[in-house]
């Protein structure tokens, strides 16, 4: 019996040793896997440039997820400030060459130009998995979905915005969409215009290429019932002070925006969250790196947005907002 106890004890000890050995091996594998993950390469191509709030938000979201999980490199195409198609194409080719050389395991393409100038021409149904984000409303013009592409589409709470307009204004008929004269804003305007039609509202385009154009359009827009402020990224001579003066002097109508950095010029903000785009793209990239086929991951729109009221502007405005709106919205003091 004692012998058996000793034997069992010995077996138990042997098992403990084996268990410890297995745990050691597992730990080694995990460490190796971790090193492997770190060895896996993620390339983040931003259509814009650092300092652009939207692009910075996406980058922030990406880095919050991928930091420490893959070897992340970032290339900025800077197409907001360089709209010349030749430049953009050259930049895309340059990136393509870099990809050929660096051989990333997954490519994250943020905003439209990255898909338009890089993914679509060079990586359609390619081996390299691609996760896009920040593409406004539709991906049809880029031929998505490819078998190697998935991602998140950037949408605005347009319906919610027009519902709010209708709740604030008794019978809105005409509105204006102000923004930079860029591809993104053109697509955005089209999306807003189509939804507005569902609410029997005519939405006029006021896209500007310069600061003075924007100011003039802003003043003209006061003739309508409301204004929707798209992003001004792409107006190279944009001047915050000039814009503020214009708004301060001429703001009389209801103004809304879906970009948080435009809240200084709008009364109500129903803003998208750029980090959501980045986080989704990064998590999807990780799932792909883990072995999931990109085509099995649905392309979805963003869902997060938040509601703000420009308190200063509200104070100067003669508009009366519904009480529930004032209570539920976050107040910002930016002019």
């Amino acid at each position: 019996m004692i012998l058996k106890s000793v034997t069992n004890k010995t077996i138990y000890v042997m098992r403990s040793i084996k268990s410890a050995w297995a745990q050691g091996v597992l730990m080694f594998v995990l460490i190796c896997a971790s090193q492997t993950a770190l060895a896996e390469r993620c390339l983040f191509v931003s259509s814009y440039h650092p300092g652009y709030d939207w692009a910075d938000g996406i980058e922030k979201g990406i880095r919050s997820v991928l930091s420490g999980k893959c070897d992340l490199k970032q290339i900025n195409m800077d197409t907001k400030r360089n709209k010349d198609p030749e430049y953009i194409q050259a930049k895309a080719l340059e990136i393509k060459n870099f990809i050929d050389e660096w051989k990333p395991d997954v490519l994250i393409a943020a905003d439209d130009n990255a898909s338009k100038y890089l993914v679509m021409p060079y990586y359609r149904d390619a081996e390299l998995p691609v996760v896009f984000c920040g593409i406004n409303w539709t991906v049809q013009e880029y031929g998505y979905p490819y078998k190697n592409v998935t991602g998140m589409i950037e949408v605005s709470p347009i319906r919610e915005m027009f519902e709010k307009i209708q709740q604030i204004l008794s019978n809105p008929r005409v509105g204006a969409y102000l923004g930079a004269n860029t591809l993104t804003e053109q697509k955005s305007y089209e999306r807003f215009k189509r939804v507005a039609q569902k609410y029997n509202i005519r939405l006029e385009s006021r896209l500007s290429s310069t600061m003075s154009d924007w100011s003039r359009n802003y003043i003209d827009a006061q003739k309508g019932d409301f204004l929707i402020l798209g992003t001004t990224s792409g107006i190279n001579d944009w001047d915050d002070d000039a814009a503020s003066r214009t708004v301060y002097e001429h703001a009389a109508k209801l103004s809304l925006t879906d970009y948080d950095w435009m809240m200084a010029y709008a009364l109500i903000g129903m803003t998208k969250v750029a980090e959501e785009q980045g986080r989704w793209a990064a998590n999807t990239a990780l799932k792909i790196l883990a072995g999931t086929d990109p085509s099995s991951i649905p392309i979805i729109p963003n869902r997060d947005w938040d509601m703000y009221i420009n308190a200063g502007m509200l104070a100067r405005s003669s508009l009366e907002l519904p009480q529930y709106l004032i209570i539920k919205s976050k107040m910002v003091h930016a002019e």
């Binding site: 589409i153 649905p298 979805i300 729109p301 963003n302």
Partner: peptide
């Protein structure tokens, strides 16, 4: 799809668990 679910469809799983 117009709301952003670009690949949305009514699906089920086949024998290979494919959509």
């Amino acid at each position: 799809r117009d709301d952003g679910y670009a690949t949305y469809d009514i699906v089920t799983l086949d024998s290979d668990q494919k959509r």
